[in-house]
């Protein structure tokens, strides 16, 4: 990693956030094995640099529409770890009241609009949020996170066209992890270089090494400046990789172990730790300290979730429609 840190403290903060996500999700996997977390669980282990590098740059009032692999996004956006963990437990104290689970984290306070388990389904919603901002004169960005799998959906193309046509302040952040569940990119896209799809819509785009948090941050900063300047949407592709299976039910028959190992050698956390080492900070020592600190936060989150309550079954039909209607 070519480290271009303005200051070491910023690098340490990025490392802290990536480690928090990593440890949080490692704990999730453990809790899943212990049947504390049920349903589908998709972890982003290996992809942390995208969430931290890109979403960390959004202003507090800017919106995020995410995918079903969104724990990292939610943590970076500032949803309390306890509220996320309680949601994974299905407890009332969860950030969606236990109604959504892992795939459907929501939080009005941080303008986090899910957690969407329909691939590509969040794009039109993000388009509408950006439209509302434009119509109301709010100078802020909506960021829609997608995987490269979503780029095969009609919603992607419809949304790109409309976002460009209406010059909406939309950042489409693509986590290209090379597989749509178990289908390799070469089997899902007729052309390689998925960011080129933006060209068809006259949308500016960039493609960046998604294992390098500083590179992601640099590219996202440029993308956001552009979107905020009112010139319309931007597509930022981050080339990344998930070290674990698609979900907890994945036998990983579709990719060679050697490929996983190659990508693990580019672990974004190790890379940044090494980068800090190169400017005179003890990367490994830092890492150990930050892991300890993360584990404390996560331990508290687990305690919070454990202590949480189950929503009474009598409330099952609450919020099907608004209570004021």
């Amino acid at each position: 990693m070519k480290l271009e840190l303005q200051n070491a403290d910023h690098g340490i903060d990025l490392l802290r956030q990536m480690i928090l996500i990593r440890r949080f999700e490692e704990k999730c996997v453990e809790l899943y094995a212990g049947q504390k977390i049920r349903g589908f669980l998709h972890v982003c282990i290996g992809e942390e640099a995208v969430a931290v590098g890109a979403l960390g740059l959004l202003a507090a009032d800017e919106a995020v529409v995410s995918t079903y692999r969104e724990h990292g996004h939610a943590l970076v956006r500032g949803i309390a770890p306890g509220a996320i963990m309680a949601e994974l437990y299905g407890k009332r104290e969860g950030c969606a009241g236990g109604r959504g689970g892992s795939m459907h984290l929501f939080d009005a306070a941080t303008r986090f609009y899910g957690g969407n388990a329909i691939v590509g389904g969040g794009l039109p919603l993000a388009l509408g949020l950006a439209l509302a901002d434009k119509m109301r004169g709010n100078a802020r960005v909506t960021c829609c996170v997608i995987g490269e799998g979503a780029m095969a959906e009609g919603e992607f193309h419809e949304t790109m066209n409309l976002a460009a046509l209406w010059r909406l302040p939309l950042l489409v952040l693509c986590e290209n992890n090379l597989y749509a569940m178990g289908t390799a990119l070469a089997h899902e896209h007729a052309v390689d270089g998925v960011s080129r799809k933006a060209d068809a819509y006259g949308i500016a785009s960039d493609s960046v090494d998604g294992m390098d948090v500083l590179a992601v941050e640099g590219a996202a900063r440029g993308a956001l400046e552009r979107v905020r300047s009112g010139t319309g949407p931007f597509l930022l592709e981050c080339r990344t990789y998930r070290f674990r299976g698609h979900s907890m039910f994945d036998a990983e028959l579709y990719r060679p172990k050697s490929e996983v190992e190659e990508w693990k050698a580019r672990d974004p956390i190790s890379q940044l730790a090494a980068g800090l080492e190169s400017i005179g900070r003890s990367g490994e020592k830092l890492r150990a300290e930050l892991e300890l600190a993360a584990d404390e936060v996560i331990g508290a989150a687990v305690e919070f979730a454990e202590a949480g309550q189950w929503e009474p079954v009598a409330d099952l039909t609450r919020f099907v429609t608004s209570e004021t209607s």
Partner: peptide, 18 residues
């Protein structure tokens, strides 16, 4: 344009956006 999913979804997003 002829993009039912996107403009209906944009309606959802715009409604969420106030």
């Amino acid at each position: 344009p002829l993009s039912e999913s996107a403009f209906v979804g944009a309606g959802i997003g715009a409604a969420l956006g106030g």
